[in-house]
């Protein structure tokens, strides 16, 4: 019988039924012992789990036999990795200079009001996550926001409810 990381993971009780860990085991097995294994494994783990909760980071540390502090250092350093749950739609409000000057702050206020969350948070129904982004290079359309891959430009706050409604159902 193959022993998987799970067997050696006293902190992961209750996850035995979770098939996502089987998938993660495969990724860990593939990269274990190779230089620079951590980032591709975390990348894959984020795909599998959608985000990287503490249990998953701990699991990766055990699997790769690495210090958990190092794993945590990497997950918190790269903004690509997310340690909190992510909504189905990620709303990114551009805070580049042009957008900022043209009222991106007002857009954020409006979204926060509409969704009842602050920047960095996800709605309880896991539908939306609100983040600020650096300049996305669409300054001609300022102020701009993105919802996953869609770009919405030249916005005023009163257009926000309509945009959100499109993704609501």
């Amino acid at each position: 019988m193959m022993t998987t990381v799970k067997d050696r993971c006293p902190g992961c009780d209750g996850n035995e039924q979770d098939e996502r860990y089987d998938e993660l085991d495969k990724v860990i097995a593939e990269y274990k012992g190779k230089p620079g294994a951590l980032i591709p494994v975390l990348h894959a783990a984020q795909k599998i789990f959608k985000y990287l909760p503490e249990e998953v980071q701990d699991y990766v540390a055990r699997g790769l036999e690495m210090s958990p502090s190092e794993v945590y250092g990497v997950t918190t350093f790269y903004s690509f990795f997310s340690t909190t749950p992510q909504g189905e739609y990620k709303i990114g409000v551009c805070m580049g200079t042009a957008c900022y000057v043209k009222g991106a702050g007002k857009l954020i206020e409006e979204i926060e009001k509409e969704l009842g969350i602050s920047v960095g948070e996800t709605t309880p129904d896991e539908k939306f996550t609100l983040v600020q982004t650096r300049c996305i290079g669409a300054c001609g359309l300022a102020p701009v926001l993105t919802v996953n891959d869609d770009v919405h430009g030249r916005l005023t706050p009163d257009e926000i409810p309509g945009i959100l409604a499109k993704y609501r159902d």
Partner: peptide, 21 residues
């Protein structure tokens, strides 16, 4: 050889701490 401490987060938010703070 313990690696209990590590820099976490980045920029202004950087914190030298154990895993998961």
């Amino acid at each position: 050889g313990v690696k209990a401490l590590f820099p976490n987060h980045r920029g202004f938010d950087t914190l030298i701490s154990p895993a998961f703070n």
